[in-house]
Design a protein around this nucleic acid. Structure first.
Lengths: 216, 216
DNA sequence: ATATTGAATAATTTATTGATTATTCACTGC
DNA sequence: GCAGTGAATAATCAATAAATTATTCAATAT
């Protein structure tokens, strides 16, 4: 890690702490500079602007979440179906808890999105790639049967959108959302499972709630 | 219609015109009163407050839209599936065009929702009732096969949420959204059709785009 | 040279004020 | 008594000023 990178990390780290505690607007560049024992002006040798620090933090949070979800690809579940269900449930629970326990994260996300409109695109694409991968596996083993994997992945992503933005759309409690998602997935799964699989269809492969710890 | 109701209508009518043209915030009670040839204070004998006039207008718009969609229940489509598909597509197109052509409607809706948080509840419930009805019909004729009609209706409503709030969630053009919805519905339908129906499944029952005129 | 500073400037936010507007209500006319 | 008024009050909004903050950059230190 280069010198520059070390200092960047120091700034990011100070910003994480302050943005998380006081929020983005209440944090000043001068404070971050103080935390890093440097002058305000010097911050600009490492980041083009305040919003870019926030964007970098959001990017990392987003990447770490995605990485967490990508882990489901290596998880040896019995079925692709189970894998897909676990993935979407994990997303619901993870983001729900994150936004509930760390309200400043939501604020930061909203600010970054409004200033950098295509920030979300990367995350959406990455998430879709995970879904695509699972679908491909399922198709290969004959578990799933879809005309076009890419389009099906997009459809599944859209159909479960509510459970990734839960708190922005509704004030239903988590248990409610989980019950609903269970039903949505049940129908979606039935919609992509192969005829062979449908014969033995049951709607209960979906995992029960379990506590999730939100990392910092 | 009582005297009071007549005057209420006059106020509503003036408000519709002004809210639609200048927007809610730029319209004053004094102007509405003028339009109705009465004093500002007198408005309050008919409505508890400015926001209540807006709420009544929004409620009517919402009811008229729902009524329009309820008409699909009487429409003699070949299949319940087709009926459901037509319904959701109609909702997408209708609200998309409404919000696109009459931006003040969106503004009004957002204001009403923020001031009267459970305003949407009635609409959501009514819409779900339509879906439920179609599902019931389909189950009766053996076209659909679902464990629990009410829960399935809720699931279908959630899974297609994006297409009822399109402009609030994405900036995709209508054609894009229609293509996506086609795929979502294709999967959902496959997920609720009975085994018998699945045998002859095709993914093309969904109607092609057609222009929709937004009423006032 | 390169890294850093801190004062200067530009942009934003906050506070303050003065309108404007929503809402109430004592009063008027029927 | 009921419908309606309009002046009085409360609440909100818009404009301005004041203060703070982001950003730049000439000067300084390493």
């Amino acid at each position: 890690m280069s010198d520059v990178d070390v200092i960047k990390e120091k700034i990011i780290s100070a910003a994480k702490a302050r943005f998380g505690h006081y929020g983005y607007p209440k944090t000043t560049i001068a404070e971050l500079a103080d935390d890093c024992a440097m002058s305000a002006g010097n911050i600009y040798r490492f980041f083009a602007g305040k919003i870019d620090i926030a964007t970098e933090i959001a990017r990392r949070e987003s990447l770490s979440a995605i990485k967490r979800f990508e882990a489901f690809l290596d998880c040896p579940y019995r079925t692709a179906r189970r894998q897909l269900e676990e993935l979407i449930f994990a997303e619901l629970r993870y983001t729900y808890h994150l936004l509930e326990k760390q309200p400043k994260v939501l604020e930061l996300a909203q600010i970054v999105i409004s200033e950098r409109p295509n920030f979300q695109m990367e995350r959406v694409r990455r998430e879709r790639r995970i879904i695509t991968r699972i679908l491909q596996d399922g198709v290969k083993t004959g578990e799933f049967e879809v005309e076009n994997v890419a389009r099906a992945a997009a459809a599944i992503q859209s159909a479960t959108l509510k459970y990734r933005l839960a708190q922005l759309i509704t004030d239903q409690p988590l248990a409610d959302l989980e019950r609903e998602l269970r039903e949505v997935l049940s129908i979606l799964m039935r919609g992509i499972l192969s005829r062979r699989q449908i014969e033995t269809f049951c709607s209960c492969e979906i995992p029960a709630p379990e506590p999730i710890v939100v990392e910092n």
